[in-house]
Design a protein around this nucleic acid. Sequence first.
RNA 1: GUCCCCAUCGUCUAGUGGUCUAGGAUACCGCCCUUUCACGGCGGCGACACGGGUUCGAAUCCCGUUGGGGACGCCA
Length: 433
Amino acid sequence: MLRFAPSPTGDMHIGNLRVAIFNYLVARQKGEKLLIRIEDTDKERNIEGKDREILDILNLFGIKYDKVVYQSSNFHIHQQMAKQLLEKEKSFVCFCDEEELNFQREKAKKEKRPYRYSGKCENITKEEAQKLIKEKKPFVVRIKKPSENIKFNDEIKGEFEFSPFEVDSFVILRADYTPTYNFACAIDDMIYDISLVIRGEDHLSNTPKQIHIRNSLGYDKEIKYAHLPIILNEEGKKLSKRENHASVRWLLEEGFLPQAIANYLILLGNSFEKEVFTLEEAVKFFDLKKISKAPAKFDMEKLKFLNKEHMKKIENISEYLGYHPRYEELLKIFRDESSTLKEIKEKFDKVFEKSDDKEYEQEREILKKEILEHPLEEEYDDFKKRLMKNTSLKGKKLFMSLRELLINQKHGAEIKDLYKAMKPYLKEIITKR
RNA sequence: GUCCCCAUCGUCUAGUGGUCUAGGAUACCGCCCUUUCACGGCGGCGACACGGGUUCGAAUCCCGUUGGGGACGCCA
């Protein structure tokens, strides 16, 4: 089984979504199930309703999953495991308070060495610990650092080896008895029998910790890992959640199609024979091992290009956008010259607004009168000839003002096509222009 | 600061010692199409970060420098 493990603490951003997509693709390729695990161990930071939003986005993108679990519902198991480690003396209770730890951190910084837990509480005797606990002194549980180096092979990045010093004696159970991320994650990956973990590269240094936890519990089945390079913004810095185009919601609101966004995120850091494809097509040729090891910059222009390509594939654009089917042909014209759904909508909505352009105001009035006084010709050429003859307008004055009369835009599609598409309701529009 | 990872056109990449005058896509520019704007067609600009090795031969292997990124929480 594979898993996608988001925390319900903020908006879904494209980095998360990419991880979800890759997990989905690989699960499909391997014929394994996909688990969605909501990592809600931090009560303080959980945001009500974010879990639902995440699942909605996954559904929207066509990422099918087999099961959803909340990490918090396994707290009793995590606590039991922590107890087990305590009994086996693979972990210890730690009474160091924030003040003490901050002091150690400051000290490490001053001495220009990385901060590690001092080991202060590691050798407290059981009796002493019992006594302090009875006195209601708050404590956490720390796992003892490993005795040997932790090695693993990353499917994308290759071999890694971490020393016990790097793994450190870290906290697995907080003072309120809830598990920390690494502990809950390591155990849940174990109990749901996860075969491969695909996640962002920011988790690389958590990996030896999680392996160490399972080792300490005596779990010896290997879990494979693949850490994806992160996505950078246009300036080459880490995409922060605050940046608009990092937010999936924002991209959707801007009129990017889910299938285009998915296409882009799969393409980023990859290369395939074809660049425009659907999620389902990608199942056939996606190769996790071929992903570039270097971080990739987000390129809005390429996304726009892909969005345009995917918009062309929409069969029934009026239905898709929720407009009356009589406007299908006109919407198709706008679709072919736009790069987002928002752009199509804006162009379309403008058609129904009153024109406020002064330049061709007079010409528009002349044309309007002429058009409304006579029945419309079947062919555009005949229509055009009549207008030229009866209004004696020509060139820009005729065509630009005519286009404005039709779609409230000086520039745009060929009038011939617009005429054909709009003929059934042309007079209606012009009357209100 | 310490540890780890990475490095080819502006951007995403192909490339695994000779086939590289470095290929594709996108972006940009030009031409064609077009009484406008786009689409489309054709063409153009444009990169192996730097310095040392190894080798008959290096974008490709090794070392260093530089630059970028990640991690260092009772966050995930």
